[in-house]
Design a protein around this nucleic acid. Sequence first.
DNA 1: TAATTTAAAGACATTAAACTCTTAAATAGA
DNA 2: TCTATTTAAGAGTTTAATGTCTTTAAATTA
Lengths: 149, 149
Amino acid sequence: MLLSKSCVYGLRAALYLAAKNDGEYHSLREMSEELNISFHFLTKILQQLTSDGLMESYKGPNGGVKLSEKGKKATLFDMVIAIDGPGLFTQCALGLPGCGSQEPCPLHESWIDTRASIENMLRRTTLIKIAEEGKAKHFRLTAEGKFSW
Amino acid sequence: MLLSKSCVYGLRAALYLAAKNDGEYHSLREMSEELNISFHFLTKILQQLTSDGLMESYKGPNGGVKLSEKGKKATLFDMVIAIDGPGLFTQCALGLPGCGSQEPCPLHESWIDTRASIENMLRRTTLIKIAEEGKAKHFRLTAEGKFSW
DNA sequence: TAATTTAAAGACATTAAACTCTTAAATAGA
DNA sequence: TCTATTTAAGAGTTTAATGTCTTTAAATTA
């Protein structure tokens, strides 16, 4: 798969928060139930995004997480970098270290174009914009269409 | 990563054979040494490609594997399908089962285009064509540039 | 026929990703 | 201050991918 499960879960949670975008903290329990993601696993992922500054968290009753200012400006690309790291956008398609225009592998030229188109797609818009569109068009964020923005 | 390691190893081995393309069987020992791939692991992968009809094998002295007629016509796409399966070309970017134009996720429209560009890149040419170009331009197939077509 | 070379098959081991559980720390409200 | 709620942190488990080893079967050569 293109993105790890951690990354996909992180994206879905971020889109959830972007759709709310009400300045409130939303609890991980609520999010894990709405999005059908394991509570503890989601916790791990969002901890990482919080320590990366894409989200802010608050403990105690009515605590939870919300998008930080940085998170509100973030694109899908920023999220993927935060969770999966930059490998997808830097590595050789054949996994050869040092592959580049100097010493290309047979796929190099084709791959850098394709890789760029993946990156462009992920950079195109912010989480907030995607969530707006999701709300307007009733896109879905779970297998069962459970979540209702 | 876009492709599994098994897939990358299989591709490199297939390009090796495509570069030879001499009708001879090449032993897995030779290939694993030239390409710096674990012998036993490579064996597993090529067994799969042989049972898929992309390669032909022959036991005994001077035995080994070579591209079948089907393999000579195969593209990178065919190889990826054989090893990693069709998931990359069919699945939702967010992993939502049943995501499609009927009930799209927020990334659906962007993703199907990107996905198609990956597929097109992999379908563009045959292994043989890529190997020809590799020979002509001295592209590399190993980390160290060991293999010399 | 016997010895050698090679792939096939399957068992086994290691590693990394995915997932779970428990305890600690912070906060709120009674 | 006490209790409940919530995230943080870290340890542990499971599963799938990756990698290794051994045995078997097929073919060649002598």
